[in-house]
């Protein structure tokens, strides 16, 4: 059976959930071979094996942290040359997409980004994408070279399928030309302890209506174990960090449940959340376009409705 390269997204050896989704999808088209860059391959290998990685190609070069993105392309390209895969799957993060794009150029391959599903097809893998702010669904395939596909978080339910997953060292030579952009310093973001926005099963988001006070939104999020999102209006006003922005110029999310509090639902916002499974909104303005999308909407003051919901959920759990 043909091998499929899966680029591993991890934090110091802790494999992130989208990678497990990729391994699950990769098994539909071939035997997953994980490519692990950085420190911690031995720690990650058991998890990767549990989800179907037949091997783990690992490299840890200092250039991966000293320079931006391109040394990792050299490494993935080395893995590509080593394996001659049937396809390459990469998580749809900012960095993942850049790596995939460059690999596609180097290998003369077609590129599909932001797939929400991948299946085997007669002429190679078929990728489903959600386009035009979620108003269309397309199915596409790659017609030249080896399919390189980036896949969005929450595209599949990770399913275990144990395989060998033995770690093999991957020989990587980082080219001089790949050291063009130096990472002078790196400041880690403070962790909030909440789930990653794009990976969360539930997202509670606040907009202009929160009027600078996200405490009700955060309390509901914590009651639900949810991530916190924010509309562009709320981010531009300085009420919440840009890393939490949902919409065209922020994150695109597709959780099981999206709760919008005080968000009107402009097209730019809808582009980032329209494919959520269940959508709930609380807004004072009954004319707000967000109500065109909802499964359940409450026209009212979020500072009454949201805390009452939080208290009710907490009470029912007792």
């Amino acid at each position: 059976m043909a091998e499929v390269l899966v680029y591993v997204d991890h934090a110091d050896g802790a494999v992130r959930k989208p990678t497990l989704e990729l391994l699950t999808l990769a098994r539909r088209i071939g035997e997953p071979v994980a490519v692990f860059l950085g420190a911690g391959a031995e720690d990650a290998a058991p998890t990767l094996a549990e989800y179907g990685a037949t091997k783990v190609l690992a490299a840890d070069e200092p250039e991966f942290v000293e320079y931006l993105v391109v040394p990792k392309v050299d490494a993935l390209h080395a893995a590509f040359a080593h394996v001659s895969p049937a396809a390459v799957l990469v998580p749809s993060s900012v960095e993942g997409k850049e790596i995939a794009g460059r690999l596609a150029v180097r290998t003369g391959s077609g590129l599909i980004t932001d797939a929400v599903d991948v299946e085997a097809g007669e002429d190679g893998p078929v990728a489903t994408q959600s386009v035009f702010a979620g108003s269309y669904t397309t199915k596409s395939r790659i017609t030249k070279g080896t399919p390189v596909i980036t896949v969005k978080p929450n595209s599949a339910a990770p399913a275990a399928a144990p395989a060998a997953g033995s770690v093999e060292r991957l020989a990587v030579t980082v080219a001089e030309a790949s050291k063009g952009t130096e990472v002078v310093s790196r400041t880690a973001r403070e962790s909030t302890g909440r789930p990653e926005l794009t990976e969360a099963a539930v997202v509670v988001a606040g907009g202009r209506g929160v009027n600078g006070d996200f405490s009700a939104v955060e309390a509901l999020a914590d009651s639900l174990g949810a991530a916190v999102g924010a509309s562009r209006a709320a981010v531009d006003a300085g009420w919440y960090p840009h890393s939490n922005q949902v919409g065209q110029t922020g994150k695109s999310v597709s959780p099981q449940l999206y709760i919008a509090a005080g968000i009107s639902g402009a097209i730019q916002h809808r582009a980032g959340m329209q494919t959520s499974r269940t959508i709930v909104a609380v807004n004072k303005d009954e004319e707000a376009p967000i109500f065109d999308l909802v499964d359940y909407g409450v026209v009212g003051d979020l500072f009454d409705v949201v805390p009452q919901l939080t208290a009710e959920l907490d009470a029912r759990r007792r």
Binding site: T138, S140, G297, V298
Partner: peptide, 29 residues
């Protein structure tokens, strides 16, 4: 390098229940 085989308009979302808060909106939610 890629080919789109199908493009289907996503069915519009069926608008669900929308209610005005009568003081119990949070509990109904």
């Amino acid at each position: 390098w890629t080919k789109v085989d199908e493009a289907a308009q996503r069915p519009p979302r069926t608008v669900g229940t929308i209610l005005a808060d009568d003081g119990s909106g949070g509990r109904q939610l």
